[in-house]
Amino acid sequence: MKRELGILLLISLGVSILAWAINPDRLPLKADFASYELGVNFDLVNAADAVQLLNDNAVVLVDIRSGEPEIRLPGAFPVRQESFDNDFRDLFDFILPEDKLLLVGNGDLMSISSIAERISERGYKNLVLMRGDISAWEHAGGEVRK
């Protein structure tokens, strides 16, 4: 029985390591407890998946970084914390409640989830939040303008 148990444990371990190694971004080994503690109720995606979503025209890109960032995301709608109502009014003309919005920020999950909550309260609940910052986006092949 010990041998059988060992074989099953090892097969499972081997296959799980292999599956993880094929796509490590799907769930990094190190848990980001901040996102769990925040109780983020929205889909979190890594930069590669976020770029793919945009390339598939599956999302409307929303840049939630505050101020006037040097590196810009072409085609993104800015929705900033400090000017949320005005920014959201501009975005409002271009989206429907069922549209999927991809929120990209500076990697701070607290600020991105805060914006996501505010957007969600206005009836736009189909939100996807990108983990990581603009450098992760750029590194994943996402288009930027400097």
Binding site: L8, S12, L13, V15, A19, P28, K30, A31, F33, Y36
Partner: peptide, 19 residues
């Protein structure tokens, strides 16, 4: 614990599957 959360979430489903 935080250090084990993701490894556990990756490994356990395969353990269930193969069992």
């Amino acid at each position: 614990p935080a250090a084990l959360l993701h490894p556990f979430a990756i490994y356990l489903p395969y353990l269930e599957f193969f069992a």
